[in-house]
Amino acid sequence: MIEGHAFRESLATRDAIQSMSGTGRCYECFFATLKKEKLYKVDTERYPMAYIKSIIFRYIMVYYNRRRI
């Protein structure tokens, strides 16, 4: 798990704490939904970061907050 170790080191250099909460937490559920409904359907490596950010913004502000049940 080199990636996990590097991630934890990155958090430590920023004085950030990794979330270790259990299942059913609202933020974790939201991000899982965002990834399943939008990001996994887009080849994110093909597009610039600004475009991916606009996809996420539109998903949250237009779809998730206004139309989603």
Rank of each mutant, 00 (worst) to 15 (best):
S19M: 08
N65G: 00
M20P: 00
D43R: 11
Y27C: 03
T44H: 03
Q18G: 08
R14A: 12
M20N: 14
R66E: 13
E9D: 09
P48E: 11
F30I: 03
R67W: 02
S54Y: 04
S19T: 12
K36H: 12
R46V: 09
F30T: 06
D15S: 14
E9P: 01
Y40L: 14
V42C: 09
I69Q: 14
A32V: 01
C29S: 12
T44Y: 10
T33C: 02
Y59M: 06
E45V: 13
L34M: 11
F57A: 06
E37V: 07
M1C: 10
F31I: 07
Y47S: 04
T13W: 01
S21I: 13
I69P: 15
I69D: 15
M49E: 14
R46N: 12
M1Y: 05
C26I: 15
T33H: 01
G24C: 07
A16D: 13
S21M: 06
I56G: 03
M1P: 03
S21P: 04
M1R: 01
P48W: 00
C26R: 07
N65C: 11
T33V: 03
A6V: 09
S54R: 08
M61I: 02
Y47V: 07
I55Q: 13
S21T: 15
M61T: 03
E28N: 10
F57S: 06
E9G: 01
S21K: 04
K53I: 01
Y59C: 04
R46M: 13
L39Q: 11
V62C: 12
Y27W: 09
I2N: 09
I55A: 03
F31G: 00
I52A: 03
Q18S: 10
K41I: 03
F30E: 01
E45R: 09
I52V: 15
E9K: 11
C29I: 02
F7E: 07
E28I: 00
F57R: 15
S54C: 02
R66L: 14
M1Q: 06
Y40Q: 14
R25C: 10
Y47W: 12
S21C: 13
M49R: 00
E28G: 05
R68H: 03
R68M: 10
G4W: 11
G4L: 12
K36S: 04
Y40R: 15
F31K: 02
I2M: 04
A16V: 07
D15L: 11
I17F: 11
L11P: 02
V62A: 07
R58Q: 04
G22D: 11
K53Q: 04
A32Q: 02
E45S: 15
N65L: 14
S10L: 11
G4P: 06
G24A: 08
T23Y: 10
K38W: 12
Y27V: 06
I2F: 02
Y51L: 10
A16N: 10
V62L: 08
R46P: 01
M61R: 00
T33R: 06
I2Y: 08
K35R: 14
K36E: 10
K53R: 04
E45C: 04
R46L: 09
M49S: 13
R14Q: 12
V42I: 15
Y47H: 13
A32S: 15
A6R: 05
R8C: 08
I17G: 15
K41P: 05
F57H: 13
N65S: 07
A16F: 13
C26N: 07
I56T: 08
E37S: 10
I56P: 02
G24R: 05
R14V: 01
S10R: 11
K36A: 09
